[in-house]
Nucleic acid binder design. Sequence first.
RNA 1: GGGGACGUAGUUCAGUUGGUUAGAACGCUGCCCUGUCACGGCAGAGGCCGCGGGUUCGAGUCCCGUCGUCCCCGCCA
Length: 605
Amino acid sequence: MCGVLRPSDAGKKAVLMGWVNRRRDLGSIVFIDLRDRTGVTQVVLNLELNSAAHDKAQALRNEYVIAAIGTVKLRDSDTINKNIPTGEVELVADEIRILNESKQPPFLPSDTALTNEETRLKYRYIDLRRDVMQFNIETRHKVAKAIRDYLSGQGFFEIETPFMTRSTPEGARDYLVPSRVQPGSFYALPQSPQMFKQILMIAGFDKYFQIVRCFRDEDFRADRQAEFTQIDLEMSYPQPERVWEVVEGFLVAAFKAAGFEIKTPFPRMDYDEAIRLYGIDKPDLRLPAFTDVRDCFAPENLQQLAVNPNLPVVAIRIPNVGELSRAERDSIKPLFISKGGAKVFEDFKRIEKNLPEAAAKIAAKSGAQAGDLLVIVAGSAQSGEQTALPPHRKVTPSELAIYASAGLLRIALAQKYAERHGVFKKSGDSAKDFRFLWVTNFPMFEWDEGEKQWMAAHHPFTSPHEEDMALLEAGVESVNDPQSPLSAVRALAYDVVLNGTELGSGSIRIHRQDVQRRIFRALGMSEDEAKARFGFFLEALEYGTPPHGGIALGLDRIVMILAGAESLREVIPFPKTARAVDLMVDAPTPVGEKQLRELGIVVKK
RNA sequence: GGGGACGUAGUUCAGUUGGUUAGAACGCUGCCCUGUCACGGCAGAGGCCGCGGGUUCGAGUCCCGUCGUCCCCGCCA
């Protein structure tokens, strides 16, 4: 292999096969850098030593596939290349065989400047030859293997579930597969194996996992692909803590496989707390939390600033940004996305000038140092009514709007000034570089403003909190009332978050028929409707279902973070574009009349 | 569905207030070169300026539309 020869191999005969990475022709002596996935070795062709081989080297071009047969030789001390692991040796070739030629590629794997992504995706087989991509795909393999090994060792069975399954009109849009033998009927590709894994619990496979492809026909982002891979698992009789322990266990193994030591257990935080401190349900702990600085202002100050005094006044602090120019301060406001009447005071200098006392208190309370950026987000007069708080909830909908607006701005600012504060740069200290977090006690229901009703925040099989059963009972008939007690029902649902990325999401499931029925009723779903959608599943629940719960983590996202990549496309061998197009194979495509006829499909233009 | 950025040689990019023959680097082709390793030197080829329309004496540059890629909001139980 091209990356393995070392000084200890000196004198040995060797055959190297690989791609011509680069050719350096000095006339009577030619150097070939030969590359395969293990690395690069220099092959020497000297006219005086072997004129036939030297002649053959004249014909070599980039990306030709060749075999070089020769002797491993220690390099003279002044010709050692310290930049590559094989740099102390070279292969003196007796013979060169051209195994295959190559057209001139649109770009070279050895290029230093990265070609645009469209070209890379079209010629993915060349892009994948680049060492970064080879590393990413290797990391992916190692991580997946470590997880398989770990879970198998813990008594989990990897069990496959169908890809061609049943469409359930919940959640994301389905990819559909038409049935030829039953024209007009369609399978759906699974958005996740959710119901199958629960059925496996009912079936007695009390520890299940699967590294499995999932499909969602929605709009895509850097961290969302049409098809993506989940580490899906489910177990019988667990407390949430037991699920977390398993996940922490396999993440330790996965990170170790990629060369990182991480510590467990991960910290835990209530959903409400995450919103209050970070304005988002997947906080990036590498950056400081919000400070509520409402009490730093005198009441007349708030009035003067037209700030709603009943709502929080949030200070966002981004450390070590340095002095901002006027233009930079002006460029903050366009980053702000106001929800529910939230407004931003992007220029802290102005607050310092007009309200020096308040500004000093804010700086002190938020722990701001010189060079830190402070931005204030507060409620305007247009903000929603402040409502009474259920005893165990810490965030009302009006507050949520403020926190969420501030949360988005916090991230936008942190990304914009990432170069300056350097918080996102890898330090080499895993405890700092990988900030894990369990976010727990999500709300069971979310208010859908469009549908004017409460919807399942996670999925309708998530178990409510034992303590909140009475609230569920009280709210079960008020699905269309935004003030319904349903707002306060917490779910036994949890997310695992890493550096502001949601890695995975899970819950303890409902195993009791009566609770499941109540949930469907609370979601405004009639008995018949529920039966039509999930009939098989509801029936299965009636045949002795053990309590069970689980989680699913995005393998692609884990590998993306481990590889230090900015996009899932960097860790998926054959990804799709934002419009779900595969540029290499050119999919999707229209199909012929005959094929459509067989499937009983007429395409409307 | 909405907002933004980008599209010029094989590749990465530059291209001034609209101005005559659209440049550079890398890559490519040929020649020279015995220790290079992003080798070096000389010479050369290579362009529907994404596509369509408009304004203009004149458009890579301005306007409208369209296609594609990327990022964000919505969406993603």
